[in-house]
Amino acid sequence: MPLALAHTNLNHSAGTQSLLIQCLAEWGGGLAIAADPYRIPESHPNWAGERFTLVEWRPIDVAGCYFPPRLTRGEYEDALKTLGEHIRRRSPRPVLVGGDFNAHALEWGSPSTDSRGDSTLLWAARHGLVLLNRGRASTFVGARGESIVDLTWATPAAAIRIKGWRVDASFLGEMSDHRLIRMELVSIPAEESLRRRRHEKERRWALRKLDPGALEVSLLSSTWPEPNPTRSVEEEANWLGDAMSRACDASMPRCRPVARKATYWWYEELAQLRRATVAARKRYTRHRRRGTDAEVEVAAGALREARSALRAAIRRAKADAWRELVSSLDRDPWGRPYKILTKQYRPWAPPIMETLDAQFLDDVEAALFPTREKDIPERVGRPSG
């Protein structure tokens, strides 16, 4: 199954950062490179960030970078050199690099090549990187023009695993001047076969759909032959595990994990506002190219209003979701808030107690809370005298 991979420049916008997280939820997870983020949550296991960051992700390494326009050519080349050293250390691992280079070159669709473009091309050739950008779609669309400054590079070993590179303007609702770059990480046949076998082993069974009769028949068929007294303890353990797995497969289906398609604060009104913002941006772009000054001014005002409405709606949605979570403390103190705090909240799986055998739960209850009649002796009084 392909894995989603994306990168863009967030322009230090809280609304754009929230929409990027929602995009990952809609795709069922993945990895995103966010240049110039609004903030990086402290001590968060799913976030990492500096001027450039390199992480190990499945079969490849992914490096994210941002080179702001204020850097001089010397500073830019020093930053490229440092990034190249990190890439060299990861050899022979496949590496993908994505980010905002703020560089222009004919090789990726710019009308001309500037000094940064020359430095970038030399740096890429030195490290054996190939350019994944396709077509001439602008990755930056601002009030003063369009350009291609967001680039994706990869080593040959990583490039063969990347499919569907494209520029997408719809998911971020045009909240940023930078477009979202999307692609998919695919597995080569041998890795895909291994992943499927591993995934099949890790999937648990749907206990609620258990067929007791089929379970009993399968266990009887497994234990029908005479036991082999010459088998070792390890062989007996392996046989028992295989027999139980076959019995479970015969009597109940495997569970299918369902990925969440939205963040905790997302709802349909936000999706409508995002679509309205995309439409307003398209009208503005169309009028700027072929319309009058008055039409451009009206379209720009409509785009500003649409962006403001979407940002305000996201802030309200997050505030409402937080208030609902806090209020649930009184209704269910050991529920979702407690599980989030202790990292035990798993929305894709039923509670662990529901997967345990009923007789086992009865035995545990009897051991923890013994009844007076059976388990607690009567108190003996003090001897007289």
Rank of each mutant, 00 (worst) to 15 (best):
A214G: 07
E184P: 15
E184Q: 09
S193H: 06
S218P: 15
A157H: 04
D177E: 00
S187V: 14
R182V: 10
R126W: 13
E174H: 14
D150Q: 04
W165V: 04
G142N: 10
K209E: 03
P212C: 04
E146F: 02
V186F: 00
A190Q: 08
E202M: 13
E191D: 10
L207G: 05
L131N: 14
R161W: 03
A190T: 10
L210Q: 07
R161T: 11
A154H: 07
D211H: 10
E216R: 11
T152S: 13
G213R: 05
V217W: 09
E202P: 07
L215E: 10
A157Y: 01
E200F: 01
L151Q: 06
L219N: 12
K163S: 04
G128H: 07
V141P: 09
L151H: 08
W153K: 12
R196N: 13
I181S: 13
S147A: 03
A125F: 13
M175V: 07
F171K: 05
D168P: 11
A206I: 00
G128S: 09
P189K: 14
L210G: 01
I148M: 02
L219E: 08
R198N: 02
A157T: 07
L219W: 15
R126N: 15
I188K: 01
L215Q: 09
D177Y: 07
S170Y: 03
R126C: 13
V149C: 06
L207Y: 04
I188S: 06
H127W: 14
L194H: 13
L185H: 07
A169E: 02
I160C: 02
R179Q: 11
V167K: 10
A214N: 09
R161M: 07
V130Q: 09
E184N: 14
E202L: 14
D177S: 02
R195H: 04
I188L: 11
A137Y: 10
R204S: 12
G164K: 12
L215K: 15
V141I: 15
P156N: 01
R134F: 11
D177I: 01
D211Y: 06
P156H: 05
R144L: 04
M183Q: 03
K163Q: 14
T152H: 08
A137R: 00
T152V: 06
E192V: 12
P189V: 13
R161S: 00
S138Q: 05
V130S: 06
E146T: 03
L151C: 04
L215F: 15
L131Y: 11
A154K: 12
R204V: 06
F171P: 14
I160E: 01
D177G: 03
A190S: 05
L210K: 15
R203F: 02
D150M: 00
L180I: 02
R198T: 00
R134H: 08
R136L: 04
V186M: 06
A158F: 12
L219K: 00
E174P: 10
P212V: 01
P156M: 06
I181M: 07
L129I: 09
G142P: 01
L151D: 14
W153S: 04
